[in-house]
Design a protein around this nucleic acid. Structure first.
Lengths: 148, 148
DNA sequence: GTCGATATGACAGTATGTTGTCAAAGACGA
DNA sequence: TCGTCTTTGACAACATACTGTCATATCGAC
């Protein structure tokens, strides 16, 4: 058992490390199709429905500036495009092109293989519970931020 | 209930977001004492015992190159120093100066306050369990990496 | 309808982390 | 002892994300 500051520190170190490891895995999975982890994340946010750049930022927890940069790169690659937004003259809607959908689709088998391996090692139930707890922690951090 | 690829994706998104939130909290806590999240992490790794730059990298899960840059900045700030390593002529040992220890010490109260607030919102037990699960996931990711 | 507040995209500057590469130092088996 | 492999620090290039700032577009109170 540990006190609260120690536990928070352990949590941070574990999350930082896992962040790097998951990014590494994502880079491996996406490299063969010409994507990167960041581009996959941005493209993944608009698979179902187009969003504005700022909206993607809110959806994935990044600043609109960094999403903007990634989105522009995806357009330059031909994997996504901006379309006119009837609700806002400047804020166009961002969505994948056919090539973009295809690239994401080709990542799925490798992702599934890795997921099955990892779920087998950790346990589906335990991992789902851990994610739920982390979401609560994230929500608490948001509130901590707001009060400031 | 969700399938394994979906759960892995949720895990990644949650970890990426929490990574950003925890970094933000660390920046807030460290700014008053002239540190940053990255410098705090590196300095924190050598509070008990000096280590080489490469050793710090292994301890915290970063590359030695990025630790090197942060360590050099800490030395330039006067918060840490390199001392001769009897076991290796080039690889000097890195450790905090008196000012470095003092800076870390002054972060503690704010860290404790945030930790207590967060533990109250999430629950100490649940969080400890989640961290343990994440560590298992990290270990599994390491093994996945090794086999490649 | 007007005006102030907010949201958005664009652009610049900065911090952090990664990979790649090289030379020097150390470790280890023959 | 020698030769080879690994480790380490140094340096460069690049990817990503952040803050700050500005002009424009939209929204909402009045």
């Amino acid at each position: 058992m540990s006190d609260a500051p120690q536990l928070l520190g352990d949590t941070a170190l574990t999350v930082f490390r896992l962040n790097g490891q998951l990014l590494g895995l994502a880079e491996e999975l996406t490299r063969p199709v010409g994507l990167t982890a960041a581009r996959w994340q941005v493209l993944g946010a608009v698979l179902r429905t187009p969003l504005t750049v700022a909206g993607i930022g809110r959806a994935v927890g990044l600043t609109r500036q960094s999403v903007q940069r990634t989105a522009d790169l995806l357009v330059a690659q031909g994997l996504a495009e901006y379309v006119d937004n009837p609700a806002h003259r400047r804020a166009k809607l961002f969505r994948p092109t056919r090539e973009g959908y295809e690239a994401v689709r080709r990542i799925a088998p490798g992702q599934a293989a890795a997921a099955i391996r990892l779920a087998g090692a950790v346990g589906h139930e335990d991992l789902a519970r851990a994610v739920a707890t982390l979401r609560r922690l994230g929500d608490a951090l948001d509130r901590l931020e707001d009060e400031r």
